[in-house]
Design a protein around this nucleic acid. Sequence first.
DNA 1: AGTTGACCGACAGCAAAACGACAGCGCCGT
DNA 2: ACGGCGCTGTCGTTTTGCTGTCGGTCAACT
Lengths: 235, 235
Amino acid sequence: MPQYEHVEKVRLLVVDDDPPIADLVATVARYEGWDAVTANSGEEALRQAAEFHPDIVVLDLMLPGLDGFGVLDRLRQSGTMVPVVFLTARDGVADRVAGLTRGGDDYLVKPFAVEELMARLRTVLRRSSGPGFQRSVLQVADLTMDEDTREVRRGEKLLTLTPTEYEVLRYLMRKSPTVLTKAQILDHVWEYGFGGRSNVVELVVSRLRRKLDDSGEPLIHTVRGFGYVLRQAAE
Amino acid sequence: MPQYEHVEKVRLLVVDDDPPIADLVATVARYEGWDAVTANSGEEALRQAAEFHPDIVVLDLMLPGLDGFGVLDRLRQSGTMVPVVFLTARDGVADRVAGLTRGGDDYLVKPFAVEELMARLRTVLRRSSGPGFQRSVLQVADLTMDEDTREVRRGEKLLTLTPTEYEVLRYLMRKSPTVLTKAQILDHVWEYGFGGRSNVVELVVSRLRRKLDDSGEPLIHTVRGFGYVLRQAAE
DNA sequence: AGTTGACCGACAGCAAAACGACAGCGCCGT
DNA sequence: ACGGCGCTGTCGTTTTGCTGTCGGTCAACT
């Protein structure tokens, strides 16, 4: 079931001065089976990095005192090549971030969706773990999703999905054949702090169905009173 | 038989300003062999959390004084990652609930059914107790129920159950081979405060029988004048 | 054979889900 | 800076199918 396999648990360090955010990320990561620790300041981050030896770091750029850039410099000075995914405010330092993402690192704008962050983390890990990294292709029945090229196919047929549709489908595919509630989908795929009603989930599912269930048997099933599943219909 | 196994008893803190509700939940939990304490205000909840060190918390969001969100914040600030299942009024704070299932927590709308609550608690515990959590599959004779995929099978044959049927069957399976009275089933599977003390249970059992006893020997047996059991017929 | 409890078909009310239509917004190209 | 287009989410309507009530029939125990 898991797409990315480590022999050992992935070790994640989350650095954000807003404890709820740091905990949120750490919690979600632990649910994926990772080891996660948090730091709420740049200084603490350096301490944790030295002790914990993370495989990957989520680093907020906007930190009081020693900021994200500072943390990054010090990390690199100490010789560690640990990959980093940056977090930045929307209108923050977007241009300066661009230069940071060369080494296989990545960045995300706040507020983000947790599934999006986890996907980026998995991608960065995959790319940075040795040279011969392989593609990540999700598959459920005759539906495939290539996370590198963002190509989605039902059988041979190429589907054109909007960003939201893509994210919802990825979540459904990743969790398949587990049944997900609308609240779970909403909470994982939409940005934290999104106020909208779970009605949007129905809508996106409806649009997804039109695109992918058009050709062939339905793959997205409604579990009335509970939620949705993506799976091949069992007999 | 139990899906989630603690070496020690599960420690549950129930927070609700309505004492009957809090006691109801605590009582059911104790009946399952858990340790349970109650708190009727946010302040008391924090005190209890500090003293009792629960493994999981049931937290009503609508509390006088320090409300559920406040309690949650304080809990998290104090560094405890204890998982929480929230209770909310139907048209109350349903919108503000967005984001709560993201960290692995869950929520339930009042009035709820006790078995539903217990099931959610077990799920959350299972998922948050370390990595590599396994599926929860109930089995009685050749009848299986996967609580993640909600797939129910009699032998190979896949059954399609409505939500109520599913809940009644889960309760029967979980308690098998104990005989349950209709009142017990009604009290556990239907929302507390459900008015119709009619023959709904008979009806649902009847519908269940048609779906699952159709193929093979009957598994649901009537104990006339008392109730129902789910078990393989004893010769 | 009578009495009581259980079973279950039929129906109606209702809640959840599907979806069409529209409006706001951001993004992009010019 | 402006205009256009496509994406997203809201609203409201339609559709679906679950749920519980009623009441007649059946089975079991006395």
